[in-house]
Design a protein around this nucleic acid. Structure first.
Lengths: 346, 346
DNA sequence: AAATTTAGTGTGTTCGAGCACATTTTTATG
DNA sequence: CATAAAAATGTGCTCGAACACACTAAATTT
């Protein structure tokens, strides 16, 4: 009664052979009206689900997937991605998969182009790409698609019809989450948004977060916060920030839009000013350390590990189990304090 | 080069037949020393991974799994579990699985016993159990084990050697998370822990949370909070709470250890006292509504949906892919405010 | 030495889907 | 009506692991 029905069963019920059923299921034609009708009648009554295990047994191709991402040595934000890849490898070991990571220098567009070129030459079945450089990424995506290589992206959104999937976060929304947190913990007064990054390519990221952050306070009716934006680069950031703090003694909160909150925290720490609320991104060791010590109040987890893992498992689902790929998977925006941090760090 | 090696390949390399390789791999004996050695030599050189797909094709048994949990109509905390079951059913549709939910009345021990009895009689392959009533649950687990039925638990921890797995949260830790949140947002002063639940069986839950909560403040050196515990039951809780609020005008924060935060919020709302920080559990609609409106500051997500889903996917991994079951999976303790809530609610 | 047991080995079938190919049936054409 | 062409249908093999069973060769018993 509970038994799963097979093609053979359907054939028997419809009074035809399994070949004919197969042709109907795959719309390969060459089926008489009569046979079609009797098979469809059976199919309507039962809920046929092809046995994916059997389907895949035959198809014993090794799928090769390349993950293209920045070198974690250049930016430790990407470090958890390695774990994500390892986890996927382990999890899907039993299937015919070959997953390889390819790193590019996040400071160097040429390197991004070169790595994509070399990946292209290795003709993988799919590429999971962190499209840091929009223009060059679009180029790469086009080339991959031309070679019928499936492209999925993670971390950075990229508008392209060629992209089958995106795994990441709603940055605007994460800005709003940060704003709500500031609203919860900071005294009324002045709030600073700090963009601390060399890299122009992160501009979109930072802008979206700022937009969400500001928008939250615009919607609040009688918000007593004044929001200022400050852009810092590696050069002279210490003195610049110190000056800013002196000029704005009423500062009650800072929202750092990148993973460099620890660098801000170091300076705040020196000034012994414990009344400033600090919100940043990403669970880097240095950030966690300031979180535990209390200088940073909350971190927002962008979950790079999960992004890669999910991106890969979508590809596996597609190749191995023939599932459709959703166009977009937005990960939760995890609020992290010193007490729940460990759960988000592997 | 990259090709996965099969039993046939190993047989060829070792100069024997696939049957002999099979006997070695499964330690079925009846193999000569000579053959054993040559096969082991090959196995040492290569990294053989049996093709789980092929293995499962043969083994076309329908695995039946029963989920035993409280009726969501009696306590809407359990409502998301249905979604978790549905998701698992959908996700694993292609495998020979039969997943069925069985509800018991969370107020009624007899009902728990009866449901487990009936599940036992249906002889499933595995049971995923919410062991609300410890003593009766241990009884049930023993009976299941005696019939060789695999038992996994979720939501409530239960000490038993018979249990292969637990999916849930570290309640002590979640109490600490709540304390840290209170510490972040509430003014110094008096804090109340409110246990609001009829059900004695939740006592352990609530106690663990209280322990974690209090422990956080004990560890803090110069904590200026005074923590009081208040137990409320459905009967007269309004007047009781109102009296408590009058008696403690310096109250700055409340930690509700159950999912009934909305009932506290209703009363706080009436008193127009916006300075009291409120932290509760679980994303019930009513809680979310107070979260959006600002009366509740944070909710901690116990993620019942994910608990069931994970519990089921462990069983599937075990039955279908022969994976070992980890003994315990502690889910992250998600901090939820009005801005990131949607990501945790389906 | 023949008969029988037993250890060791190999062969063949199964699972369900998919597809190539063979076979049968129908339709079209001289 | 015969024959060719086209359409429809069925058969049989593959994938890899698992296991039943058949078989051979060596060891033991009669």
């Amino acid at each position: 009664m509970d038994k799963k029905l097979t093609i053979k069963d359907i054939a028997q019920l419809a009074g035809v052979s399994k070949g004919t059923v197969d042709r109907v299921l795959h719309k390969r034609g060459k089926v008489s009206q009569k046979a079609l009708e009797s098979i469809n009648a059976v199919l309507e009554q039962i809920d046929y689900e092809p046995n994916l295990i059997a389907r895949n047994l035959k198809n014993n191709k090794i799928y090769s997937i390349c993950v293209v991402l920045p070198n974690p040595e250049s930016d430790s934000y990407w470090l958890p991605c390695i774990k994500g890849i390892e986890q996927a490898k382990k999890e899907f070991k039993a299937f015919n998969l070959s997953i390889n990571a390819h790193y590019f220098d996040p400071e160097n567009t040429e390197s991004f182009i070169a790595v994509n070129e070399s990946v292209l030459n290795s003709s993988p079945d799919a590429v999971l790409l962190a499209p840091l450089f929009s223009k060059e990424a679009l180029d790469a995506v086009e080339k991959y698609s031309a070679q019928n290589i499936l492209v999925n992206t993670f971390n950075n959104q990229l508008e392209s019809d060629e992209i089958r999937n995106f795994v990441g976060q709603d940055l605007y929304r994460s800005g709003r989450v940060a704003a709500k947190l500031i609203d919860s913990i900071a005294q009324k007064g002045q709030i600073a948004i700090i963009h601390f990054d060399e890299k122009f390519k992160n501009a979109v990221h930072m802008q979206e977060k700022e937009k969400g952050f500001r928008n939250y306070f615009l919607q609040e009716e009688n918000s007593d916060y004044e929001v200022t934006t400050l852009k810092l680069k590696r050069k002279n950031y210490e003195t610049k920030l110190e000056d800013f703090l002196k000029e704005n003694p009423k500062l009650t909160g800072i929202f750092i839009t990148t993973s460099k909150a620890y660098q801000i925290a170091e300076i705040i720490d020196k000034t012994k000013n414990n009344t400033i609320a600090l919100i940043g991104y990403d669970l880097l060791d240095k950030n966690i350390s300031f979180l535990n010590q209390g200088t940073i109040d909350f971190l927002i987890n962008q979950n790079p590990k999960q992004q890669v893992y999910l991106g890969l498992s979508f590809l596996v689902d597609h190749f191995i189990f023939g599932k459709e790929i959703n166009h977009s998977a937005l990960l939760p925006i995890d609020i992290v304090n010193s007490e729940n941090a460990s759960y988000y760090m592997e």
